[in-house]
Design a protein around this nucleic acid. Sequence first.
DNA 1: ATATGTGCAAATAATTTGCACATTA
DNA 2: TAATGTGCAAATTATTTGCACATAT
Lengths: 132, 132
Amino acid sequence: MASLKYSRQRESIKEFLMGRTDHPTADVVYENMKLIYPNISLGTVYRNLSLLADIGEIKKLPSFGGADRFDFRTDQHSHFICTKCGRIMDIDTENIDQLLEKTASKFESGQVLGFSARFFGICEDCLKKEKN
Amino acid sequence: MASLKYSRQRESIKEFLMGRTDHPTADVVYENMKLIYPNISLGTVYRNLSLLADIGEIKKLPSFGGADRFDFRTDQHSHFICTKCGRIMDIDTENIDQLLEKTASKFESGQVLGFSARFFGICEDCLKKEKN
DNA sequence: ATATGTGCAAATAATTTGCACATTA
DNA sequence: TAATGTGCAAATTATTTGCACATAT
């Protein structure tokens, strides 16, 4: 029944995500884990990210023109995605979440288990760079 | 300056998407195009889908645990995504779109160019199958 | 001891790209 | 005839998986 066993690697991955708010890709996690475990493999990183997402300890964000992102915040919140640099920022949308919740409860063609709002655009940093 | 030239393949791809509401993947488009152009290549399909999305004639939906989806509807609307079978359905959310619009206009850490709400869950068909 | 986890490398899946030839304007 | 598009195959990118060995319970 697939019970869970401790692993240093998994704990470090979790801790790493906990300390970041920028929703890194698996590859970024991998690069950072290599500093602690020089021999860690990308496969291990992917396996643990999937596992952590499955048990709800982290959240997997579907890709937007690139690699998936992983987020330690598992509570309901929205994202702003910069289409220039790919950065993902949390965005405060309490009222939206309430409305989504309401819409979800009214949906009749299936069972809604989750929802999210996403905003696409260009972040401040990229706007500044454009002025050059 | 990359001006646009007519191509039968591109027109057919557009027409095909126009006749569907289920947001097919590039591969599904490819399989259907092969019925018309037996020698068409997947590369051509991808190139035209990207091109059409760039000029705003279709919409590219970021992947959710799989291949990207393409949609002829380019107006603002939301999606219900079945996490079992991957089906994507349009969902009517006028009030949500208004609220998202309002939130977008208030956002200060960048320039919002678009937004979307997505609902995840299990569609009616998959719910029925689960009962077996 | 036995299930679970890991590293490694190979496999798979989705998408992109270089190039010679074909088509459009 | 010059720019754009196509087919083909190889390359790239993101992710998954089989296997022998290592580690946790």
